[in-house]
């Protein structure tokens, strides 16, 4: 170290705006990252009720008919691309499904209840839900695809897309931050070119000269990162409060868990790290052009 002596004065102003840039970028990146994590949790929750299965409901009409109609439903399902298998639930399984609602004694055992067919989807093939729904309805009037699950499947696909965009945004923010640091360091380097050239010719190692810049960049980045994190945390807190007030079961999954908080705390660290290493490499690059 230089023993507390500032060999490169940081009076150029080139570094003064850096904390604010880092603050804004950490803020944006933290929001994007928390979005990715929240969606990830959401998707996992939504998937738990899905996992490649669909349910087809065959309504109870005259009970004599029901078995035939179930058989017809099974035949159609098994001949549809994208379906791996279809099994009609038996009485015991129906009873088990109803038990949470009516208790083990099942006081409604004599009522006509719809029969359920469990459909296992072939994840390698895309299933055309609309086509299947139309075919079923034609052959077995009243048969109904459980389209809630279809909708969830589409929601998951959308969520994955949004996640991808958010991650790409984080990468872009990191790149923009690195570019800003490069410009700031280059500006300082050109203002203090004489000092840098002198240190170089006096036998200062590249790493020694780089240290004068990278430590400053690290400090600026850490300051800005802290501000950005506080802003992001406040924003997320307000958001989570607003979500909590909605009675939307799907959004329950979007709350921020402890993992999210740990990852969020890592965002300003990454920001400061990018500032540090970018400054270091920029100085090395400039020194590399000296004799």
């Amino acid at each position: 170290m230089s023993g507390g002596v500032k060999l490169i004065p940081d009076d150029t102003g080139a570094g003064r705006f850096l904390p604010w840039v880092v603050a804004v970028m950490v803020f944006l990146a933290a929001l994007a990252v928390s979005g990715v994590l929240a969606l990830d949790q959401g998707v996992r929750g939504w998937q738990a009720g899905f996992e490649g299965h669909l349910t087809v409901e065959v309504p109870a009409g005259r009970s004599a008919d029901l078995d035939t109609r179930v058989a017809e439903t099974l035949r159609i399902l098994r001949s549809t691309a994208g379906v791996r298998g279809a099994v009609a639930l038996d009485d015991a399984e129906h009873a088990a499904l109803l038990a949470p609602w009516f208790g083990p004694d099942n006081p409604v055992a004599d009522l006509p209840i719809p029969r359920l067919v469990d459909v296992e989807l072939d994840t390698d093939h895309q299933l055309d839900f609309d086509y299947l729904a139309r075919r079923l309805d034609d052959a077995v009037p009243g048969a109904r695809l459980d389209d809630h699950k279809v909708w969830v499947a589409q929601l998951i696909r959308l969520a994955r897309g949004v996640q991808f965009i958010a991650l790409a945004t984080v990468v872009l923010i990191a790149g923009a931050l690195a570019a800003v640091v490069v410009f700031a360091v280059r500006a300082t380097l050109s203002v203090h070119h004489d000092i840098v050239a002198l240190l170089h010719v006096m036998g200062a190692r590249d790493a020694y000269i780089a240290r004068q810049f990278q430590n400053h960049a690290l400090w600026m980045g850490a300051k800005g990162g802290a501000v950005g994190l506080v802003l992001a945390a406040a924003t997320l807190f307000v958001l989570s409060r607003l979500v909590a007030r909605l009675e939307a079961p799907l959004l329950d999954q979007l709350s921020l868990g402890p993992v999210t908080l740990v990852v969020l705390a890592f965002v300003p660290v990454a920001g400061a790290g990018i500032a540090f290493f970018t400054a270091r490499l920029t100085v090395f690059g400039a020194l590399g052009r000296m004799p």
């Binding site: 230089s2 023993g3 002596v5 060999l7 006096m202 020694y208």
Partner: peptide, 15 residues
């Protein structure tokens, strides 16, 4: 931006 003393001390620091 450095004092006279620090200027003279520079080679010792670099060493």
């Amino acid at each position: 931006h450095l004092s006279v003393l620090e200027n003279v001390a520079l080679p010792l620091r670099l060493a």
